[in-house]
Structure formats: structure tokens, C-alpha cells
Design a protein around this nucleic acid. Structure first.
Lengths: 255, 255
DNA sequence: TAGTGGTCTAGACCACCCT
DNA sequence: GGGTGGTCTAGACCACTAC
């Protein structure tokens, strides 16, 4: 291990701060413990509050910290594994899969969803809102888009328009023979309504899971589920008990 | 008494700004086009540069923008779908799966990896670095951890320690009968070395895909792959041609 | 060398939670 | 009311890229 590096790269302060804080979290704090407030931490490290906040934001993004306005900053528990495996060949709302129907209404979907469903842009369809709970905490908010053609038996009149109607739409869906589904995951930021559902601020980072359900030779429904990125690790397969601490642990670097 | 409360909730400036910019991107700009610089944009909207930057950061997080120091801010193309489906029952490096071996060395893995492999903490093992290219762009950097027990035929001496050795380790891996694998996805921030590989700044948001490979009744190898979160949408199944524009499009809100 | 985004500062005020 | 994190400002300097 030769003394390789010159002084070439001045590391940003917030980056160094993040490292220091991360190590402090490992050694001096336990889960749930609250940290000193931002003004004091900034003073203690001799930086501006904005700089300190940049470090805290990174740590929150990595799921190490949890910050709540009016309360404080606490050490977050390890991320929970949330199973999103696609193996189960069943419609949403079938065996009750930890999702709780919240409501339903007729509305026009975003353009991207229209495209996937092959419905004319601006066409209204059933939109079912559901929430996924794990350990008593909301971890995901979902919008399920169901074209009227997929639930032909459903009365066209829109009377209940609430939780009751949501259950009705889901029940009607089960009639269709599910032929397959596929899934995509990407990073997004929470819309205001999803953020509220997830107990986060608007713009919070989320993992967006888009699922297409196939039946009768076409895309019969589309689900857009937003998972809290700070608290969730999405698992595919039987890796639910995987325990990953943090990706930024001291790493082995291959040349 | 029709006190229809307007504006009881003042929307943060950066949030409103993000919305305005997002719409402008849709209507007035095309992919690859460069935006006015930050100082001018801030002046044009009558906000401080820091506030404008908060909006730009959000848009970059959502994959709408791309910013490069010394160059400018450009409109990003839609995210590319990257297949990470686990169906293919093959070891990494088998049918050459768009991954390019970069190097290999002996090193001690992070604690979380040791735990998954069941190797003593601090034990050295083979660490293979690979890069995944798509459309000529690097989209992912991977560290593949292989315990010596999984490649018994490999000479213990560490001579080549480069790309040659990486290929050797991968070739030896194929000898084992792969019994299964599972996968987990979570949000992380790029370490300095991964960031360099991905042509991003340290701390850039990445999707971390952790894969466990099972053989001979145990976990025979672990892969930690970090994908650029700004440019990639991870797809599972045959949804590679899915085209999702942006999750924040005008949405239908169910009650 | 000129222009870009990235980092940093030292303040101020606001929204929210608790007691 | 007192304390927390969230937003915002108006500057300054630095690192990088391209010409």
C-alpha cells in the first residue's frame, strides 16, 4: 500500500462531513436516537448550516437518518425488505396482499399510462387508489388504472366513488384471466398527494414501480406504485430476509 | 360563509418553479437542447440562484435534465429501459451480457457482503469489477464478490490482477452449477470510484441492485451493481420496450 | 480566458410539533 | 412559546470545459 495520492483533489466539505457523521452514527448512536439539532451540529463542525444540511440530506437519502420538521433528526432503522416479486400470478387485490384500497374515481390518466393501455389520450377510466402498509407504516401509495373495457360488468354510473367502489373495481378485475405481467423500477419524486399518503414532504425521493397486467391479449390494467425510497428495499424473489446495512460501507476496490 | 380558502398553503417557490420549468421543457424545448445558464434563469424568475438550483436538482433527479459542470444544463432524453430480469439462469459473464470486465483483486468485502456470503468478517476474497454499457454509455458499475471456495481451481497467487484475472475468475465461476439467485433494489448514492466509472459526481443518486447467486446449497457469490438513477429504468420481465415519460405528468387523483 | 455548474457562507423568516 | 427542520436570499469563490 504505497502512499499514492497527491493533494490533488480537495474533497468537498459536505462529502467529508457525511463520512465523519456516518462513522459517528455507526459507533456512537443507536437506532431511534435523536441527533443534536442542525444549528448546533453546524457550529460543532465549524461549517455553515447549509453545508451541514447537504451532508444530512445525503445520509437521509441513503436511509441512515430520518428528519421530521418540528421534531428533530433521528437515526433510522435498517431499510425494510418489501417483496415486489412478480411471480404470483394474480390480480391486485386478490389474496389481500397488504394493500388497502382507499378510494376510486373516474379520471383521465397521464399520457404515459394512456400509451401503455392503448386508450385514447384524455379518455377517462377507473382509477383506484391503494396504500401498502408494512409494520404499521405506510410504505407505498399506488394508482391502479383500469379501462372500462376490462371491467365490463361494472355499472357505468359513478355513485359510491369511495372505498366501496374501489373494492368493486378490484373484485370485477378478478373475473379476467391474468395472462402475465411485467414490472419496471425507476427513481422519482413524490407528488404532493402521494407524499401526504406516505407521510413525507412533496418531492421526497421514491421508487416508482410500474406494472402492466396482461389479459385477453392486451394490457388490461396498469399500476403505478411509489415506494418510500428512504425506508424501503424492494426485493425480487425470496430475498426478503436479506440484510444489507449500507451501500457506502468501506468497500473493496478492484483495480 | 363561502370562505373558499385560497392559498392557505403557500407552495414552496422551488416547487412551483419546478412545475413551471417542467411544462416549459415539454412545450418549448427538445431533447439535447441547452437551457439558459443558472444565473440568467434565476434572474428571469426573480429568485435566488440557490432556489432555482433546488428546482433543477429535482428535475435532474427525475431524469428530465442533465447538468455538466463547465458545460451547461441540457434536456435529457427519456430514461432507457435496462433489463435486470433474473430469469436467465446463468452466472455473470456467461453469454456476455453487456457487462465488460474491468479488473479484479483480492480484498476484504464490506460487512454486509460478508454476512450474505457467510465468510468471516475481514476475510479476503476475489472482487471483480465490471461495467455495463448501453448505447455506448456506461449505465452501471458492479463489484462482484467471489469467495475463494467458489473458485477452487483458481491459483491462489495474485499475479495478473487486472482485466485478465477478472476474466479468469468469471470463467472459473461457470464451473459451478447455478441453483438460483435473488435480487434487491434500493436507492443509494454513488461512491467516488463508482461515480467516476459512471461519469457522475460523487454522491449522485444510484439504484443499487444486490444479487445473491446460490450454488452447492449456499450463497456462492454476491454482486452489488450501481445503476445511474437519472438515466436508467430497471425492467423486470419483457417490458424492455415500455415507454414511460415522467412519473410527474398530470395525474388523475382518486379520492 | 470566459463561461458554466458546484460549493460555501451568514444571515433571515416560515411551518410545524411539542408542552 | 420555544425549539425543530424547511425555505430563501445575496453574495463569494472554486473546478471544470471549451475556445
Amino acid at each position: 500500500m504505497g502512499t499514492t495520492q497527491l493533494e490533488t483533489v480537495p474533497e468537498p466539505k459536505y462529502w467529508h462531513l457525511k463520512t465523519v457523521l456516518s462513522e459517528a452514527l455507526d459507533s456512537d448512536f443507536s437506532v431511534g436516537e435523536i441527533l443534536p439539532n442542525e444549528r448546533e451540529l453546524a457550529a460543532r463542525f465549524g461549517v455553515a448550516r447549509a453545508t451541514l444540511r447537504q451532508a444530512l440530506e445525503q445520509l437521509e437519502l441513503e436511509g441512515r437518518l430520518q428528519r421530521r420538521r418540528g421534531v428533530g433528526t433521528t437515526v433510522a432503522p435498517p431499510r425494510m425488505g418489501v417483496d415486489v416479486s412478480t411471480s404470483q400470478h394474480s390480480w391486485p387485490g386478490a389474496a389481500d396482499d397488504a394493500w388497502v384500497p382507499v378510494g376510486s374515481a373516474l379520471a383521465a390518466p397521464p399520457a404515459a399510462v394512456s400509451r401503455m393501455l392503448g386508450t385514447p389520450l384524455g379518455d377517462e377510466l377507473h382509477v383506484v387508489r391503494r396504500t401498502r402498509m408494512t409494520h404499521g407504516q405506510p410504505v407505498a401509495a399506488e394508482l391502479l388504472y383500469v379501462p372500462a373495457a376490462s371491467v365490463p360488468e361494472l355499472p357505468a354510473v359513478e355513485t359510491p366513488s369511495g372505498q366501496v367502489r374501489a373494492r368493486t373495481v378490484l373484485r370485477e378485475l378478478q373475473r379476467l384471466g391474468l395472462e402475465g405481467q411485467d414490472r419496471a423500477v425507476e427513481l422519482g419524486s413524490a407528488r404532493a398527494d402521494d407524499a401526504k399518503e406516505l407521510d413525507r414532504l412533496p418531492g421526497a425521493p421514491v421508487l416508482v414501480v410500474t406494472t402492466r397486467y396482461f389479459a385477453e391479449g392486451r394490457t388490461a390494467a396498469v399500476s403505478v406504485a411509489t415506494y418510500r425510497a428512504d425506508t424501503c428495499r424492494l426485493t425480487f424473489g425470496d430475498s426478503g430476509d436479506l440484510e444489507i446495512s449500507h451501500h457506502d460501507a468501506p468497500a473493496a476496490h478492484a483495480s
